[in-house]
Design a protein around this nucleic acid. Structure first.
Ligand SMILES: [Mn+2]
Ligand SMILES: [Mn+2]
Ligand SMILES: [Mn+2]
Ligand SMILES: [Mn+2]
Lengths: 219, 219
DNA sequence: CAAATTTGTTAGAATGATCTAACTTATTAC
DNA sequence: GTAATAAGTTAGATCATTCTAACAAATTTG
């Protein structure tokens, strides 16, 4: 069984795996805020349990076994976040740190009950998909608000960044998932975008913000 | 801040501290299922953080600081057990192992919300008192059923043992906290006791069982 | 009380997770 | 296509937690 530390490495590898499914040691070290030798030695030990494929000087690749293990931890993380928001009155900006700990609890029934009480949710409070209990995660293809055009109406559906600071910024503008936004205009100079939504007839969002907002185009 | 391992030692010391508040190394080692040298070396390191007072060949004593730290972990453990039973549909025999893990989560709001949602409970699902958020625990003085006399009517209020096996035994006899029991008779030979309660007009309980059942005498 | 038993300690080792310093391989820039 | 830079590895150390083997102190027993 994976230790909490190993679980955090598997999750980081899972989240950092892009199209190729490959992760550089330096990205892994960076993501987990450990030194490269630490990441290097842990990768070697993950290989002994067949969670990754690894050759000197090559990027790390999760095996199917490693992917499933990681997806099930992500599942526990996201179910926990949803539970904290929907059942325990947490704000979406308060849940990540707690979920980072609770994801390591070994108690299948605990997470099964969360799942049932939540009605088998498919997304977490930040719009990220929740893998199913077999570790399969559906991929959504949302559009960043930054690439939307004036006059489009869109619905805010997910975020590419869920840092506390960003979530608190969104709170301050009353932006939450599900909100319908109308794109009013874009400023060519700095790529800022002006949107309108209930109670906010004219809100200017910087490119930094709008590229982190994922939307579904309604019309 | 105490590691999970240190927290488990503090909790064990707290639970093993009897009237004198002293704990032998061998009892500690036994309780935690570690070797005596392991317990010995951990006690030395707990001393460095002022959680215990310790001198060679003397029993260990928790300092007030150590007592408070331990009581707050016990609080998290028992609040968790209550939450699992009252809010998540767990049986009282299923909660201890999960609580043993969740008690180490560092997230004050998580436990504050449990406490609020439960209406600030004072006992856990097994009748043990929940320390308050300052680490103060009230002592109840209940009577073991084994020392009750025929014709007494009592209410089952707590247990001195909460092992899964014992709890499953109680489930099989439909014995739960709050049940009113009438003592019918006692067998002098083996100290077994016959009680009657709703739907169970005649139930014989061994001494081993009756000394683990704590009751409040009603009349 | 002396012997036997129980309890507690020390020494030495192992494992997991981490670091810094020094070195090597791979990639990028001119 | 070298030279400079970035990325990756090795070596060696530390800290936490645990163990077994060997020894020492305290307690119990005849
Ligand atoms: Mn999260
Ligand atoms: Mn984590
Ligand atoms: Mn318990
Ligand atoms: Mn525990």
């Amino acid at each position: 069984m994976a230790s909490s530390t190993e679980e955090n490495y598997l999750k980081a590898l899972y989240n950092l795996s892009n199209g190729q499914g490959e992760v550089n040691i330096s990205d892994l070290a960076n993501g987990l805020k450990v030194s490269m030798p630490t990441a290097n030695s842990m990768v070697k030990s993950l290989q002994k349990s067949d969670w990754v494929i690894y050759e000197k000087y090559k990027p790390v690749i999760l095996t199917p076994k490693g992917q499933k293990e990681a997806a099930l931890i992500v599942r526990k993380h996201r179910l926990t976040e949803m539970f904290l928001v929907k059942k325990m009155g947490f704000g979406w900006e308060e849940v990540h740190e707690v979920a980072e700990q609770i994801e390591h609890i070994h108690a299948p029934k605990f997470f099964e009950r969360m799942d049932e009480m939540l009605g088998h949710p498919t997304i977490d409070p930040h719009g990220s998909p929740i893998p199913d209990n077999q570790g399969r995660m559906q991929e959504f293809s949302y559009t960043p608000l930054s690439s939307c055009k004036p006059n489009q109406t869109v619905q805010l559906t997910a975020l590419t960044n869920s840092s506390t600071e960003f979530l608190e910024f969104l709170n301050s503008r009353k932006l939450s998932l599900g909100v319908h936004l109308k794109v009013i205009s874009r400023e060519a100079y700095d790529q800022s975008i002006v949107v309108s939504y209930p109670d906010h007839p004219m809100e200017t969002l910087s490119e930094k913000v709008s590229e982190r907002l994922l939307v579904r185009v309604l019309e």
